Simulated scan of single mutants.
Amino acid sequence: MTDQPLRERLRTALLRARKERDATATSALRSALAALDNAEAIPPETMPAAGAIEAAPLGVGASEAARRQLSDDEVAEILRREVAEREEAAAQIDATHPERAGELLSEAAVLATLVPEGTPRSEEIEAFWREAVRHARFDGVPGYVPGSTLAVVPPPSWSFGGTPEQADELLRLVLDGAKTATASALWDYEAEGEPLPEVGGLGIVLDSEGRPRALLATTRVDVVPFDQVTEEHARLEGEGDGSLAHWRSEHERFFGEFAAHDRGFARDMPVVCERFTVLHTA
């Protein structure tokens, strides 16, 4: 059960609540699922411009809203906020409408049972995101609309590399302005069932201790065979002497040592080459 995606757990809980005729749980779960649906909708103004056919989702008509897939972390964060909103509303009306306040607290309790325990740094990440929303310039970032659910929920957070030392060293290069690109094995994304990065996607980079240090926005994504990664990309990664030879040597070792898949290393293995810009740092 713990391996079931959080959204599916919500749907399962809703079916059970309806079967048991639990009006409180049914109302809370329907509302939470509706909040997730709203968060997944990409506003029309952020759709690709005319001519950008390769970036447009397939099967989306003029009257349909494009969708994005929320990660489990994003779903959990929205659930936490659904719980908090009910608890805050209950506190505000408890004196004047105690019955309704009790209903809100009951709904909050239903949702709270489905919220995963947060990481020790979750509050620090939320505080970092609030600061970024206030100070960063999001001009040209697709999908970001001030005041929307997506603007409230922190984007995914992660660290570079496969060891604490690599995490801090690569982060330092980013903060120094030397690193504006990264690369990952496509086979890792497939093995872990993770979506590929998209232009406009946001991410919070953590240091080796899990502290949020930089907010990045993806500006370009290319998938190419390992042996066709360009000298320009190697230079933008900012590691070592910046040469393609150094990039190939280090990444052949890295892709072999820290692979999430079991396909080994191959000179023609597909590599996700991602470029990014730094929007905010701590």
Rank of each mutant, 00 (worst) to 15 (best):
V278D: 12
E126T: 09
L33D: 08
G161F: 08
L79F: 15
G61R: 14
E117S: 14
D227L: 06
D207S: 09
P154R: 02
V223F: 08
P156I: 03
R11W: 05
D37K: 00
G59A: 13
E123F: 01
K19L: 14
I125T: 04
R11F: 03
V133C: 09
P156T: 07
L244K: 04
S31D: 15
I78T: 03
S208A: 07
R130W: 01
V110C: 03
V83F: 02
A32C: 06
S31R: 11
Y189E: 08
R86D: 07
A132N: 11
P98W: 06
T182A: 10
M47V: 15
V205M: 10
E239R: 08
A76Y: 07
L29V: 02
A17M: 05
P146E: 12
R18S: 06
P155E: 08
P146K: 04
G177C: 04
V174I: 11
L104W: 06
E231H: 01
R121E: 15
D188K: 04
D241T: 14
L170D: 14
F255K: 03
A151I: 04
T163P: 07
E274C: 07
T182C: 06
E169W: 03
P225Q: 12
G242E: 04
W129S: 01
W129A: 06
T12C: 01
R137E: 15
P225I: 09
A56I: 08
E165Q: 14
T12V: 02
V75H: 00
E194M: 14
W158R: 12
R248C: 02
F255S: 09
E192I: 03
P98M: 08
E123R: 04
L206V: 03
L70V: 12
D176C: 14
P5A: 00
S184N: 11
P116V: 15
D22P: 06
D176F: 05
L215D: 01
L15E: 13
E192H: 04
V224D: 00
K19A: 15
E82Y: 02
W158M: 12
A89R: 10
E123C: 00
R68T: 15
L173V: 04
A167N: 14
A259C: 00
A35Y: 09
Q166F: 09
L14D: 08
P155R: 05
G59D: 14
A108C: 00
S159D: 03
D222E: 12
T149F: 07
M47R: 15
A181Y: 04
R67L: 12
G51C: 09
Q92I: 09
E40C: 11
T281W: 13
L171Y: 13
I204M: 00
D227I: 07
D37H: 04
H251D: 15
S157I: 03
A90W: 08
V278F: 07
G143M: 06
R81L: 07
R134A: 09
A181W: 02
P120N: 01
P146A: 13
E165D: 13
A55E: 10
T277I: 12
F138A: 09
R267E: 10
R100Y: 10
H251M: 12
F276A: 05
T163V: 02
L33M: 10
R81E: 13
P44H: 13
P212R: 08
G203P: 05
G61Q: 13
L244D: 07
A108D: 03
I204Q: 00
E103M: 04
R172M: 12
R21L: 05
